[in-house]
Amino acid sequence: MPEMPEVEVVRRGLAPYVTGRTIDRVEVHDVRSIRRHTPGADHLGDALVGRRIRSAVRRGKFLWLLDDHLDDALMVHLGMSGQLRVSAPPATDPASVGGPGAGPTGAAPSEGPASDPVKHLRVRLELDDGTRIDFIDQRIFGGLWLSPLEETADAAPAGEGDDLPLIPSSAAHIARDLTDPQLDVERTVAAIRRSRASIKSLLLNQQVVSGIGNIYADEALWAARIHYERPGESVSAAKVRQLLAEARAVMERALEVGGTSFDALYVNVDGRSGYFARSLNAYGREGEPCPRCRAPIRRHVFQNRSSYVCTRCQRR
């Protein structure tokens, strides 16, 4: 599943194409991808056509588009394999006027295989300048829907991409992520240390801190030398702060290179894959030597997920 860096790469890539543009047409090719919009496809199309998009906003793994009326937001959740792919006329393509090496992602150039932009097309938005935004989803765990807006609990901006203190109700339960300047780090530390749950499950709990998934949890735990099964209450406050700092650092490094792609299921809006997978220290490195101590990296099954751990650095 795309984690915070991958969704932020998509948001940055999408924003130049949609900001200030009006939705002219909506095509729903598979109603399963709008199942959370219970009024159905016709209602979604009627509600979206004519909207002028104000901004693309993200909190954690949730992405949404705001329009000028500020009554509700178009939610986009990528699920396991969702993509937003952009096709713009050359004269209006922001990537064509950015100079050498420029691209629509807002991050460093990435590389990798591009997935089929047609086979798994589920929803298409056409904008007033001819740009097409395609939602492609092979496994159909993601989707689009409209969600009413409400004020943020702390009256601060809801997420990255806009300064309004308005958040879709569908995302209001999601905690702030580690790159959010409004995050109360000490409150997050206290929440982790109050819990008997395993430290990894707490990192993955989007109501504790958002945006972290399996890959970056394993990488942060490796960096902080913490075993994934340790209860949150057994980890010192200083160690939890270090863990959160490591998680933020690894996600920021991933963001710089377009995120982490192991296959064509995650790509940027221009169809390119991120290449942070080359820089992973623990995740996916079963049997390889730990970069720090040379002991073998082991793969364990934890809560139906793979967890990668150094047998020497991260003692239980």
Results as ranks from 00 to 15, higher is better:
Met1Glu: 10
Met1Tyr: 09
Glu3Gly: 08
Val7Trp: 00
Glu8Met: 13
Arg11Met: 02
Tyr17Gly: 07
Val18Ser: 06
Val18Cys: 09
Thr19Cys: 13
Val28Thr: 03
Asp30Glu: 06
Asp30Phe: 02
Arg32Asn: 05
Arg35Ser: 15
Pro39Gln: 07
Pro39Tyr: 08
Gly40Arg: 05
Gly40Asp: 08
Ala41Leu: 09
Asp46Asn: 14
Ala47Val: 05
Val49Leu: 01
Ala56Leu: 05
Arg58Asn: 07
Phe62Gly: 08
Leu63Pro: 10
Asp71Met: 01
Asp72Asn: 10
Met75Ala: 12
His77Ala: 09
Gly79Pro: 10
Ser81Trp: 03
Gly82Met: 04
Gly82Thr: 04
Arg85Tyr: 01
Arg85Gln: 14
Ser87Cys: 06
Ser87Trp: 04
Ala88Leu: 04
Pro89Glu: 07
Ala91Trp: 02
Ala91Pro: 03
Thr92Lys: 04
Pro94Gly: 09
Ala95Arg: 09
Pro100Phe: 05
Thr105Met: 06
Gly106His: 12
Ala108Lys: 08
Ala108Ser: 14
Pro113Gln: 08
Lys119Tyr: 01
Arg122Phe: 02
Val123Ser: 01
Val123Met: 00
Arg124Phe: 00
Glu126Cys: 08
Leu127Met: 13
Asp128Gln: 01
Thr131Asp: 12
Arg132Ile: 01
Asp134Cys: 03
Phe135Lys: 06
Ile136Cys: 14
Asp137Trp: 08
Arg139Tyr: 08
Arg139Ala: 11
Gly143Ile: 09
Ser147Ile: 10
Pro148Leu: 11
Leu149Gly: 02
Glu150Ser: 09
Glu151Lys: 14
Thr152Val: 11
Asp154Trp: 11
Pro157Leu: 04
Ala158Met: 07
Ala158Pro: 06
Ala158Thr: 07
Gly161Lys: 06
Ser169Asn: 02
Ser169Leu: 10
Ala175His: 11
Asp177Pro: 05
Leu178Thr: 11
Leu178Ala: 11
Thr179Asn: 12
Ala190Gln: 13
Ala191Ser: 14
Arg193Phe: 09
Ala197Val: 07
Ser201Leu: 07
Leu204His: 08
Asn205Asp: 15
Val209Phe: 02
Ser210Lys: 05
Gly213Cys: 11
Ile215Trp: 09
Ala217Arg: 01
Ala217Cys: 04
Asp218Ile: 15
Glu219Phe: 04
Arg225Lys: 15
Ile226His: 12
His227Ala: 11
Glu233Gln: 12
Lys239Arg: 15
Arg248Lys: 15
Met251Phe: 07
Ala254His: 11
Gly259Pro: 03
Thr260Phe: 10
Asn268Gly: 15
Arg272Lys: 13
Ser273Ile: 00
Gly274Asn: 09
Tyr275Asp: 13
Tyr275Arg: 11
Pro289Asp: 06
Pro291Trp: 07
Arg294Glu: 12
Ala295Phe: 12
Pro296Ala: 14
Ile297Val: 15
Ile297Trp: 00
Arg298Met: 07
Arg298Ala: 13
Ser307Lys: 02
Tyr308Phe: 15
Arg312Lys: 14
Gln314Val: 04
Arg315Met: 08
